[in-house]
Simulated scan of single mutants.
Amino acid sequence: MHAVIASPQEQKYVVVRPGARAGMQIPSTHYRELADAVGAALSVPPWLVEAAQRAWGLNLASERSDRAVLVRPVTALAYSRATWEINLGCNFNCEHCYLELRPFDGLSLTQKLDMLAMLRDAGVLWLQITGGEPLIDPHFSDAYRHAYGMGMLIEILTNGSRLHQHVELLAEMPPHKVTISLYGATADTFESLTRTRGAFKNTIRGLDAAREAGLPIEITIIITKHSAHEVDQMRALAEQYTSTYDEFSNISPTYTGGPDPLAAQAPGYLDKSAVFTGCPAGHTFFHVDPHGRATMCKIGREHPINLMTEGLDGLTRLPEIADAQMLRTGGCSGCALSATCRVCRPLAKAYQAAKAPLNTYCQHGN
């Protein structure tokens, strides 16, 4: 199995290592040299031997290029990232979930593998596998192995409750990172939001197994009305497993405009600091749902492109579809404060459909 991956990355070329954060940008001449060396089963070029030792402590001096390096080809489509809902089914029933319905259905295994090959051929290097809960999908392991073998850097977005069942695979084929949601610091708090008995115990079991296996863990602390009183304890708990954690407190409606998740918002924890400055959704990355339908992102799901029937040709329409969804229409038409708006247009549309109070997403509510 490959130790490093050489890949086009939009207008650049990079060399990356599965499971490692550090990477390197290389000139096109080095990329072509690597491709030639792999094709001829030559030794790893000296410049990569030195760079790999410096970046990762990896010794490639005695390795053949075709065994150590996976060279991904230049593709006609310059997408570099994608998110994939492998399934919407979930073993938690979280109050704040942005998915209104969570049916357990989707593509067959053969279709999943075909769809992943399309993502590779679209240029996708960075793949986030999400759900629902991805680790309860019966095809997760096979799909993960397939994506890894094609040279994708994989992030798994999970509640962690089934992580202990997959650590052997993930230690063998390291993900770029495993991002685990933390909903509380105690079982009572955690399960008041997830509405699932045993959720806290199983997530901690997953975190323990991931730490023991040396997996690259990130934690997202979810702050809601249920957990706001435990924020300091949640931070301390996260720090037992990783130095890298984020905090999320802006609860949104469902992507179809359902208002129910907004009830989980913690008073006083609405973060208004980030100004929306644009997004390359639909241009350099895209989202795929469990049925193989591609959209600009998980929120902007209008006019989906069915990859299973249209193939990669359908993605050529995605930039235009994305641009149309970013236009400030409806209640945002002609807004004089748009230059300092904090939400994108698809998300604002979901808030408007949910009849959310203006102060939860719009400057006009202040």
Rank of each mutant, 00 (worst) to 15 (best):
V343I: 09
G292Q: 02
A210L: 06
V38I: 08
V178L: 04
I156Y: 03
K12W: 15
L157Y: 15
A353W: 08
N91Y: 04
S181H: 06
V4E: 09
L101W: 11
Q352F: 11
G206P: 05
V167L: 11
Q233F: 02
N59A: 11
D66L: 05
S273N: 06
A51D: 07
R102Q: 15
C297K: 02
P27C: 13
L135S: 03
R54Q: 14
A294S: 03
L119W: 11
E230S: 08
S181E: 03
P346R: 04
T256I: 09
L262V: 08
L60E: 00
A236I: 02
A68L: 11
S252Y: 09
N366E: 12
A185I: 05
S333H: 12
A228F: 10
F190T: 03
N306E: 09
A117Q: 15
R17Y: 10
G198E: 10
M115Y: 05
F190C: 01
A350C: 12
K177A: 10
A263Q: 10
L70P: 02
V4C: 12
S28I: 11
H146S: 13
E100P: 02
T254A: 09
Y269H: 15
A171E: 10
E247D: 01
D246T: 13
S227V: 00
H30G: 10
D208W: 07
Y255G: 00
N250M: 02
D246H: 13
A213Y: 05
M118C: 12
F190A: 02
E191A: 10
W47S: 13
S43T: 10
P304T: 00
S252K: 11
R317D: 06
C341V: 06
H96P: 05
Y361T: 00
K298H: 14
C90F: 12
C97M: 09
A117C: 07
G314W: 07
S249W: 10
N202G: 00
A76K: 12
T203P: 07
Q352V: 02
I223H: 01
A122N: 10
T256S: 14
L119T: 07
